[in-house]
């Protein structure tokens, strides 16, 4: 579904990620693990069109989307939830969700699904997004992305700034989306959480892929265990 080949990207002429290749198949949940500054955010920004890659190719649903601006990428079915969420703080939950479906009218069934997944959003329907808690904002960001009825949901560190229990709830929601058959790509530092819900994973180190494998392989890899799982 998504094929990333030899992508390099960065700012002001210096690449943060270099020659990265990975792929996500239909129905899979794939995670990219890496420490702070490994280049996860830069990689995702390059994939979803917020930052044109300096070289390499990004293919989605068989079509080349390299350098396609983000607003066009999302209309092709690739929805991105950045770590900073980028909600519209002065708008209500309802308005944020409706904008998620832009330029179409929001689909009532999709809205219902989102509100079933995150009942909290229904309770806060008329509240301004900027006044909600971090966990609620994260739900809204995912909900807004789902309103575009994406084929692939890309999440960058969805648990940033969330309390452990809230983070676990967020992954419970992802697990349900996965069960519904949605293809998911997620970047995470909280590796134990992400490993539990994903099929495969890649380890990004200093802007390059260091390791790849199924979640079970990664979980048993000694390097992953010592660096990300805190097992010595």
């Amino acid at each position: 579904m998504l094929e990333v080949e030899g992508v390099s990207a960065g700012y002001r002429g210096s690449d943060v990620v270099r020659d990265v290749s990975f792929h996500v198949d239909e129905g899979e949940t794939v995670m990219i693990i890496g420490s702070n500054g490994a280049g996860k955010t830069t990689l995702f920004r390059a994939v979803c069109g917020l930052l044109p890659p300096s070289s390499g190719e990004v293919r989605f649903l068989g079509e080349d989307i390299t350098g396609l601006p983000a607003q066009k990428v999302v209309r092709r079915g690739l929805a991105f939830v950045p770590a900073e969420r980028h909600l519209f703080p002065q708008m209500t939950v309802e308005e944020n969700l409706m904008l998620g479906a832009y330029p179409e009218k929001p689909d009532p069934d999709t809205l219902e699904t989102v509100l079933e997944l995150f009942p909290r959003l229904g309770e806060r329907f008329r509240q301004l997004a900027g006044t909600m808690s971090g966990g609620e904002q994260q739900m809204l960001a995912v909900g807004r992305a789902l309103m575009s009825q994406p084929r692939l949901l890309v999440l960058d560190e969805p648990t940033t700034g969330l309390a452990p229990i809230v983070a676990r709830n967020a992954y419970a929601a992802l697990e349900r989306l996965r069960e519904q058959g949605l293809t998911i790509l997620v970047a995470e530092q909280q590796v134990p959480l992400a490993l539990a819900v994903s099929d495969r994973g890649y380890v990004l180190e200093n802007g390059a892929i260091g390791l790849a494998g199924t979640s079970a392989e990664l979980a048993s890899d000694p390097r992953v265990r010592s660096a990300y799982l805190g097992v010595v």
Partner: peptide, 10 residues
Amino acid sequence: QDEEGSRLVG
């Protein structure tokens, strides 16, 4: 309110 956010919703 958020230019990048607006791009992300299309």
